[in-house]
Design a protein around this nucleic acid. Structure first.
Lengths: 116, 116
DNA sequence: GGTAAATATTTACACCCATCGATGTCTATG
DNA sequence: CATAGACATCGATGGGTGTAAATATTTACC
């Protein structure tokens, strides 16, 4: 059963790619996170949020950065949130998304790391 | 025109996600690499090759690690090769794939890095 | 309570993609 | 040259996915 664990938590506790062959189960989880980043719009969204002052950004700001419909941006943000790469906080009418930098760090270590 | 540049080379010369908003053009290139890793089979293939002794692995070894047809594995290897994550070398009847560790390092820096 | 703004959800659709069977290519060997 | 093995390519197909229009939900404010 699902205990509310996000795919990024699977990334947190796995060896680097070059360390040992990744198991099928782990690969299944990790690939979900990489697939979330494997889209130009979501990649820009992550970068926009992560590089924004205060480490967070309002959806209204994000919508303006793209030539896409509001539901489409909302869809991408939801996906990034579900895999655990973005935190969501509602303040009044606005919704702010914050990048989980430690999740990005774990992912980076998993891809390029050499230590255990 | 295409000068033979692989998507991983676009990753090599771009700032970290958290440093500044990624442009649409760069995101388009980088997402290709992440999409290549965003598949459980290809993720395991990269890990198998990267963690293999000598940093390379024969296709025959890789085929046996999966419950998939040989054409399917060949397809995934070709994709990883095209984006620049795997090097390909034919020696006799066998084909050996080698992981581009510096490409993995650049990708990791792009995701989790903080410096310019 | 009514209205407007911000964001999410639903529904539908066109397109991409992982997979496999069949076949092709290349190399070594007898 | 014929055969066998290793690997790639082709064609087809079923499931996944990005997108938008329409609609719903939530919040603030008059």
């Amino acid at each position: 059963m699902d205990l509310g664990l996000t795919p990024v938590q699977a990334v947190a506790c796995c060896s680097p790619l070059s360390r040992e062959p990744m198991s099928g189960e782990v690969a299944e989880q990790v690939s979900v996170v990489l697939k979330a980043l494997g889209d130009p719009v979501r990649l820009r969204l992550m970068s926009l949020v992560a590089s924004h002052e205060g480490g967070e950004a309002c959806v209204c700001d994000l919508n303006d950065a793209f030539d896409l419909s509001q539901p489409t941006i909302s869809h991408h943000l939801k996906l990034l949130h579900e895999v655990g790469l973005l935190e969501r906080e509602k303040r009044g009418v606005w919704v702010y998304y914050r990048a989980r930098t430690e999740a990005l760090g774990n992912l980076a270590a998993m891809i390029g790391g050499t230590a255990k």
